[in-house]
Design a protein around this nucleic acid. Sequence first.
DNA 1: TCGCACATGTAATGAGTTACATGATTCC
DNA 2: GGAATCATGTAACTCATTACATGTGCGA
Lengths: 182, 182
Amino acid sequence: MAKENKTRYALLGFLSSQPASGYEIKKKMEQSTNHFWREGDSSIYPILKQLLDEGMVTCALGNKESDKPKKVYAITHDGQLELQEWLKENPVYYPHRNELLLKIFFGWNVKTAISINHIENFRHIVKSVINDYQAKTHNVVENKLTQKQLYQYLTLKAGIIYSEASIRWCDDAIKLLKKRVK
Amino acid sequence: MAKENKTRYALLGFLSSQPASGYEIKKKMEQSTNHFWREGDSSIYPILKQLLDEGMVTCALGNKESDKPKKVYAITHDGQLELQEWLKENPVYYPHRNELLLKIFFGWNVKTAISINHIENFRHIVKSVINDYQAKTHNVVENKLTQKQLYQYLTLKAGIIYSEASIRWCDDAIKLLKKRVK
DNA sequence: TCGCACATGTAATGAGTTACATGATTCC
DNA sequence: GGAATCATGTAACTCATTACATGTGCGA
């Protein structure tokens, strides 16, 4: 079975919300799905073109006021259907690789201080990510959200819960390792 | 900058513990690092060969008693050094893709029941994974572990903490979605 | 005028996955 | 005898990333 390209569904999904250019989609991704889904700078344009050829999206040039070379894509009925079909299918759970854990796993080959350092660095990164999340959720009232906002909020919450779990593991691991080192 | 192949370090890491054949390494991976690092069936043999060419490992044929076509690899001094150099470097944090969250993010395009169903399926999978972890840790006494076992234990604990976080998110998300649907 | 953000693309690399291919041994 | 596991590998394909390439509009 060929590996399916899922970027197309991400693009269709964003366009199902409102028409946008490739660049705008990329910016929106960075703001909203960055912690669980991101695309490279150049992967997005070829696939938009492909979707256009397949009739899943339409393309209109620029907005009338300015003459910027901007292509605004919009989803078609076929595109909506394909998106919905995909949304109904069971998602696949990739086992993701974690290089930090691999280094910890083999940590007995180096000084304990090195492993502790890796974990502390990771903890710093996660801390700053949590701040980001909190800025985005701190004035959210759960039962005042629109349907669309609720779903976005759920993915944000996933980010928070996983990050907090990371912090807990870091603290635990550092404590155990420091006990050994002294 | 070329993307670095990290499989080699995983192999060196396992061989730093004890000599083994490619197949044995694969089996050990499945038992120990499967939740944060796994290799495809066929990715492991070419890289062992490459490590052999580079002098990072040696290769001895079979064990004397049986004449199985088994190649037992052992790490060399150079291999140990390369492993340690890599262990000292700061790990890279990949943003991993999560297809479930992407489907949830665009969930307002389909019936709420579909999103709830995806989350419930995921919850089942995580539950069975947690049972696995617990079987492996239920008789561990933290301060009786050897250095090597401690590091392995830390990665196991990471698996547990992340899985528990997943369950918490699932319960949370299902509750919020069910409130909307009724 | 210089640099930055906007805006769209192509080409090359290499990594990961899947399918394919082979053959021995062990257990039922 | 047949199935599962042990054991090693090759080939093809897809995907993701990186670097490259080009051009506009705007503010300091």
